[in-house]
Amino acid sequence: MNKPLGYGLLVGMKVTFKTMLQTWMSIATGGRKGLQSTVNYPKVKEVPVARARGVIALDQENCTVCMLCARQCPDWCIYIEGHKEHKEPTSPGGRVRKRSTLDRFDIDYALCMYCGICVEVCPFDALYWTPEYEYSELAMGDMLHDMDRLQDWMSTVPDAPEIEK
């Protein structure tokens, strides 16, 4: 380490200057060539990976009000209410079927800790993760997503990624 005094300072200055030139190049070419670490957020958006745990989508069709998700949730941020509905038999003389119908399915994202246990335990494919992340709100209360809003997220559920062989 027989470097002259000030050598380390100059090497450091070289690094920052080089980075500056690289960033200029990157901006001039208009692309992210691995040099620019941030993007122009509202204009350019980061694309999260398919498995990213952004927000939970609810498929109301599949939900049977079994409450498993609400029970397994570590911080109880899922609120479910439902009632039994009697379905008229489809053919005459048939049995009257009971069907559970969802009245309320709220997830309080102000409380949710994004562990994914609810999605994991759902036995009827009603809950999915989607990588969407733009749902911040000005008021804490608005972080409570009701069942319609959760249903809307269904359109953003990505396909599961291929598995490494």
Binding site: T16, F17, T19, M20, Q22, T23, W24, S26, I27, L35, Q36, S37, T38, V39, N40, P42
Partner: peptide
């Protein structure tokens, strides 16, 4: 702006 570029950021742009 310059500090941003030295840190491979864009800096103020909005």
């Amino acid at each position: 702006k310059l500090s941003a570029h030295m840190q491979s950021r864009i800096g103020p742009y909005f």
